[in-house]
């Protein structure tokens, strides 16, 4: 996914000289190609994220297309007010890229983990929120973001979980959830980012279940989700994010009043990561390991209480 991100950045900057990449002194190897191909469009703003977002707003007001890169724990969380006032209030075309979202920095602890970024941004008027699951979704999200003229946030989570789509999403509408596989059966999984790859493992373990992948949290076309949920016994949401305010909340808000089956949100609960370890370890600590999710869903499908 990171190679696709670098490729998309370079292509965007080469196609449009107004594109500027701002970084808060992050992205060491990630920007090698960009710095080689487009050195004039690369601005290291130092370890000063608040100023970086204000500078991006000023550049955008004057006609540039800034892309602001940081770790998701800092961009958007540390600079939420700058995003709200300096960028969103004026509807400026600034793209934010939050890398390492979720618990990717599994050994570094709470300061570098971000399981609240989607929830923090969703209420801001006019901002788009992307959360790609693989390189194909990322490429489509970058294209959609750069075609827009509005604030946007692209959430990059664990990059090496593998493809969930077999081919590029050329021409597909990513503001609607993408159905993986055939529709039907009692179980629907709705997932975003790394959650989509987890959902695929869960479906393989259960031998059933359809998946809706959601690369674009906002704007969000609700119709495909409502249609896909109709008649299901269980809708479960999987995301490497808090169960409060993220995709789980979006799905609940969308389905309330039309869907009457069981509903489960699987993600981070009311706690930080107490211990450290591999990314897989932390996912399992938070109840997101595929086998644990599968066991939970199997019980629910068999009629156990949620």
């Amino acid at each position: 996914m990171r190679a696709a991100f670098s490729d998309a950045l370079v292509a965007a900057a080469e196609a449009d000289k107004r594109v500027l990449l701002l970084t808060g002194d992050h992205g060491y190897a990630l920007f090698d190609a960009f710095r080689r191909e487009c050195p004039e469009q690369y601005i290291n703003c130092g370890i000063a994220e608040q100023n970086m977002v204000g500078v991006a707003a000023g550049l955008a007001k004057a006609g540039f297309r800034p892309l602001v890169y940081g770790l998701a724990a800092f961009v958007p969380i540390r600079v939420l007010e700058q995003i709200k006032i300096d960028v969103c209030y004026e509807g400026l075309p600034v793209g934010f890229i939050g890398d390492g979202a979720g618990v990717v920095y599994s050994h570094l602890g709470a300061s570098h983990q971000s399981t609240e970024d989607i929830a923090a941004l969703r209420p801001l008027p006019g901002i788009s929120i992307y959360s790609p699951a693989d390189r194909h979704e990322l490429t489509a999200c970058m294209r959609h973001m750069l075609q827009g003229q509005a604030p946007a946030y692209l959430r990059m989570g664990k990059a090496d979980m593998g493809d969930v789509h077999a081919a590029p999403l050329d021409g597909q509408n990513i503001t609607a959830p993408l159905l993986l596989g055939e529709a039907g059966g009692p179980l629907l999984l709705v997932a975003t980012g790394s959650g989509t790859r987890i959902a695929q493992h869960v479906v393989a373990m259960l031998g059933q279940g359809d998946i809706l992948s959601v690369p674009c949290i906002k704007p969000f076309d609700p119709a495909p989700l409502k249609a896909a949920a109709l008649g299901r016994q269980l809708v479960a949401v999987i995301e490497e994010h808090s169960v409060v305010g993220g995709l789980g909340s979006l799905v609940a808000e969308t389905l309330v009043g039309t869907y009457t089956g069981d509903f489960l949100r699987i993600g981070m609960g009311e706690r930080f990561s107490e211990r450290c370890g591999s990314h897989a370890y932390l996912l399992s600590e938070h109840g997101l390991a595929a086998d644990a999710v599968a066991a939970r869903l199997r019980g629910l499908l068999a009629g156990a209480p949620a």
């Binding site: 707003a57 000023g58 007001k61 007010e81």
Partner: peptide, 17 residues
């Protein structure tokens, strides 16, 4: 009025120029 925002935006405008 939320203070500490404007100068950074001004720096961005100056950088653009």
């Amino acid at each position: 009025g939320s203070l500490g925002h404007g100068l950074s935006v001004g720096v961005g405008l100056a950088l653009a120029a």
